[in-house]
Amino acid sequence: MALRLGADFVAGVLVGAVFGWGFDALLGTSPWGLIVFLLLGFAAGILSLLRTAGLIAKRPGLDDDAAFRRFD
C-alpha cells in the first residue's frame, strides 16, 4: 500500500516535470513552464494519492459516494 501511494504521487510530479520541460523546450519560456507544471503535477499527484487512499470521491462530482460521506 505504501509503495502504491508513493508511485501515485511520484507519477504525478514526474508527468508535471516532463510536461513543463517539454513546454519550455518548445516555447523557450524556461524556467516558468517547469515551475508552473511542476506545481500542477504536484497537485495532480496529491489528487490521485487521495483517490487511491479513498479519502475523496473516486470520480469527480460524485458527492454521494460512500467514501465521501464518511468525512461529512
Partner: peptide
C-alpha cells in the same frame, strides 16, 4: 480540469512504475 488531465496522464506512469519498481 488541467490538474485532472495531468492526474489522468500520470495513471499509466504510476501503473507501470509500480510493477517495475517492485
Amino acid at each position: 480540469t488541467f490538474i485532472e488531465v495531468l492526474s489522468f496522464i500520470s495513471r499509466p506512469v504510476s501503473l507501470s512504475i509500480r510493477l517495475f519498481a517492485n
